[in-house]
Amino acid sequence: MAGQAETAADGAEKGGLVFHPMDQFIVKPLFGGDTIAWYTLTNVTLWLALAVLAVVALLVLGTSKRAIVPGRSQSIAELAYGFIYKMVEDICGKEGLKYFPYIMTLFMFIVSANFLGLIPTAFTTTSHFAVTVVLALAVFLTVTILGFVKNGTAFLGLFWVSSAPLALRPILAVIELISYFVRPVSHSIRLAGNLMAGHAVIKVFAGFAAVAVISPVSVLAITAMFGLEVLVSFIQAYVFTILTCVYLKDALHPSH
C-alpha cells in the first residue's frame, strides 16, 4: 500500500499518467516477512477466509431460524440451494445428486470470492490462475477418474463418436481427445481471465481519473464497469458450475 502511494507520487512528479492495473493482484504477507512460503498468512489467506465467512454467514447463520416462512437471508440461502440442486438434477440426472455437495461447494466459493473481490481495495482470489487452475484440475481429475471407475473402458466411448461414419471416427476421436484435455485450460482461464480483465479495466479507468478534465467520464466508466463486473461475478460462477455439471454428466453417461 505504501508502495502504491510511492509510485503514485512518482507518477505525479513525472507529470504523466501512471497505471498499475496489475498491482491489485500482488500477493503480500499480512504481517510482514521476507518470503512467501506455502504456509505464510497472506492477503490470499485473508480473502479466502472472508469467503468462508461469507458462505457460513449465508448458509449457516442465515438459516439458523429454520423458519417455515423464510426471512431474507434464509430466502437467499434456499434460492442458492434450489438453483444448484436443480442444475445438478437437470444436467446430471438423479444419480448426479450424490455430487451435489461438491458442486455446491464450488459454486458458493466462487460466487462469494467473486463478490468479495468487488469490494474496493479487496483482493480477488478467483482472478488468480493458481486458484482457478486448482479448481479446474480438481474437476477434471475427479470427473476423469469417476468416468473410468463408473464405466470402465466404456468411458472411452466418449471419444468414439458411434453416430459418425466409420471413416471419420478416428479423426473425430483425435478432436474429441484434444477438446477433452483443453477443458481444464478453458475452464480455469475463463474464470480468472474474466475477473482479472474487469478489475484491471476498472483500475485503468481509475488511473485516468487523475486528470481533472477526464475524471467525470472516468467515474462514469468505473460505475458502468462495476455494474458489468457484478454481472460477470455471478455469471462466471454460474458458467464454471454448469460446465462442471456437464463434465460430470459426461463421466456418468459417456455415450453421446
Binding site: Q4, E6, M22, D23, F25, V27, W38, V44, T45, H128
Partner: peptide
Amino acid sequence: GGSAIGMPQLCFEWFPNQIFWL
C-alpha cells in the same frame, strides 16, 4: 517500487501459498 512485474497471476513463487490456502 512495489509494482508488479508482468502478470502477478503468473508468479510461480506465490503458487504454493495460494494453492495451500485454497
